[in-house]
Amino acid sequence: MNPTSYLVLATILFTLGSGGVLLRRNALVAFMSVELMLNAANLAFVAFARMHGALDGQIVAFFVMIIAAAEVVIGLAIIVMIFRTRRSASVDDASLLKL
C-alpha cells in the first residue's frame, strides 16, 4: 500500500494544527489545534502500520487517543479555570507574565 497520500494528508493536518496553535488567539481554538496535531500523528501512524503490515502503529494510535483524551481533560480544566477567573479565553489577555 502506498502511504504517500495519507502522509500528505497527515502533514497537512499537522501543519494546520501547528499553525492554529501559533496563530489563533483563543486558548480553546489553540488547544483544539493541538488535538488536530495529535490526530495527524495518528493518521500517519496508522498509514505506516498498513505500509509495514504491522499492528503496532495502530496500537500507538490507540494510546495517542487516550493521551489526547487525558490532555483534553487537563486542558479543559485549566482553560475553564482561567475563563472563570477572568472571563476570557484569549491567549493575549493572559499576559501578566511578561519578560
Partner: peptide
C-alpha cells in the same frame, strides 16, 4: 455551566476505556 465540562471530561475517560 461548568458541570457540563465535568460530564464531558468523565465521558471522554470512559469513552476511551470503551475503545480499549
Amino acid at each position: 455551566p461548568i458541570k457540563y465540562y465535568l460530564t464531558a471530561m468523565t465521558f471522554i475517560i470512559f469513552d476511551i476505556e470503551i475503545i480499549f
